[in-house]
């Protein structure tokens, strides 16, 4: 019989809600939503509609009296719902390949 003091433990399958527990779903994106912050009124419709949800209002940002809408590209899947819902039409869906070069530069 195993020693009662040994380090054996019964293991169960548990998971807790956590950010990105399924990996960085931003990798799935073909199109990237890009906000035109000059036109954006910070109405937060995109925040409400984002199914992930990975859009939020950063109230600390002082560039505008209400703050700044930021998209977490680590998890945004590029579904385009935000761009579709935006009343100001100030979110553009841009092909992800357009960003490849910039990111490679950053890597170096």
């Amino acid at each position: 019989m195993p020693d009662a003091k040994d380090d054996f433990k019964v293991e169960t399958w548990n998971s807790k809600p956590a950010k990105g527990s399924a990996g960085k779903t931003g990798l799935w994106r073909t199109f990237r939503p890009v906000i035109n912050h000059e036109k954006c009124t910070r109405c937060e419709i995109c925040v409400l509609f984002c199914p992930e949800p990975c859009i939020e209002l950063d109230q600390e940002d002082k560039s505008h009296k209400k703050g700044k809408i930021i998209i977490d590209y680590d998890y945004c899947k590029g579904c385009g719902i935000c761009a579709n819902e935006c009343p100001q039409h100030c979110i553009d869906m841009i092909k992800e390949t357009e960003f490849l070069k910039d990111e490679e530069k950053e890597d170096k």
Partner: peptide, 12 residues
């Protein structure tokens, strides 16, 4: 063949 998991549009 493929590696099948939870197939989701856009996932690698």
């Amino acid at each position: 063949f493929a590696f099948y998991g939870a197939e989701r549009r856009g996932a690698p």
